[in-house]
C-alpha cells in the first residue's frame, strides 16, 4: 500500500528548530513502523538517527510517538494504525537530542531513585540453596517483572510532561516489583520515597501509562496498590 510517512527531524548541529521530513513509499501492510524507518535510512536519508536493537518488542529501545500515541516502533504494524498517513515523533517530556533520540537520563535517574533492586541482609539459607517463595507469593508481583524500561508509559503521563521530577509510572512499577516480593526487606524505605509530592501522589489515574505499555502491564493498578500500601502501612 502507498503511505505518506512524516518523520520528526532535528539536527542540533545544523537546525535552529525541528522540522518534518515527508516520505512517500510503497509498503506491506504487515511492515513494522520500524521497518519503514529502516527503509528511510536505506533508500532516502541515511542520516536519520534513532535507537533500535532487538526489533521484536523485548529490548525497549525504540519507544516513540506514532500518530500521537506511544508505541514500540517494532511492535506496531502499518495496518494496525488504520491510516495511510503515519507521523513519527520522539517521546514527549524528554529532551530531544537528535531526530528520534531523546535524553533518557532523567528517566533512568527516576528509576534508580526507588531502590530498584532486592534488599535483604538476612543470612542466606544454610544449605546455600535458594530462598523459598511460594508460587502465590511470586504471583503477587509477576505482572510488574515484565517491565523493559522503554519509557513509553512515563512519557505518556501528563503529570510527567509537566514536571520531570515526578518519578513516573515506570519507576513506580519497578518499586512495586520489589515492595511486593516476599524476599525483599526494604518496602518501608521505598514506600517512604514514594510518599511525596513527586512520588505516587502525582499520579492522577489518567490511565495513559496502562494504554501505552507495550508489555501490557496493569500499571495504574500497580500504582494504586502502592498508594494503598502507603495508606495502610501493609504490603
Amino acid at each position: 500500500m502507498q503511505i505518506k510517512l512524516r518523520v520528526f527531524r532535528f539536527d542540533p548541529e545544523k537546525d535552529q528548530k525541528p522540522r518534518f521530513d515527508t516520505f512517500f513509499m510503497d509498503v506491506d501492510p504487515n511492515d513494522r513502523v520500524l521497518d519503514l524507518l529502516e527503509y528511510v535510512k536505506a533508500d532516502f536519508d541515511s542520516s536519520l538517527a534513532l535507537r533500535r536493537s532487538c526489533a521484536h518488542g523485548i529490548c525497549g529501545s525504540d519507544a516513540m510517538r506514532i500518530n500521537g500515541r506511544n508505541y514500540l516502533a517494532c511492535k506496531v504494524l502499518v495496518k494496525n494504525l488504520h491510516s495511510d498517513q503515519i507521523t513519527v515523533e520522539p517521546l514527549l517530556g524528554l529532551r530531544v537530542i537528535k531526530d528520534l533520540i531523546v535524553d533518557m537520563e532523567p528517566f533512568f535517574e527516576n528509576y534508580r531513585s526507588v531502590l530498584p533492586y532486592l534488599i535483604n541482609d538476612e543470612a542466606l539459607p544454610e544449605d546455600g540453596k535458594e530462598r523459598l517463595q511460594t508460587p502465590e507469593e511470586r504471583d503477587r508481583f509477576e505482572d510488574t517483572t515484565k517491565c523493559i524500561l522503554c519509557a513509553a508509559c512515563t512519557t505518556s503521563c501528563p503529570s510527567f510532561w509537566s514536571d520531570e521530577r515526578y518519578v513516573g509510572p515506570a519507576a513506580i512499577v519497578n518499586a512495586h516489583r520489589f515492595i511486593f516480593d516476599s524476599r525483599d526487606r526494604a518496602a518501608e524505605r521505598r514506600l517512604n520515597i514514594l510518599n511525596q509530592q513527586i512520588g505516587v501522589w502525582r499520579c492522577r489515574t489518567a490511565f495513559n501509562c496502562t494504554e501505552a505499555c507495550p508489555r501490557e502491564i496493569h500499571i495504574t493498578t500497580a500504582i494504586a496498590e502502592v498508594k494503598q500500601a502507603i495508606l495502610s502501612g501493609k504490603v
Binding site: 533492586y117 532486592l118 542466606l124 540453596k129 535458594e130 530462598r131 523459598l132 517463595q133 511460594t134 508460587p135 507469593e137 511470586r138 508481583f141 509477576e142 517483572t145 516489583r177 520489589f178 516480593d181 524476599r183 525483599d184
Partner: peptide
C-alpha cells in the same frame, strides 16, 4: 539470591 524471580515449584523451590 540477587533477586531473580524464578518461577516456583509448589514447595517454593
Amino acid at each position: 539470591h540477587m533477586g531473580l524471580p524464578f518461577s516456583r515449584t509448589a514447595d517454593g523451590r
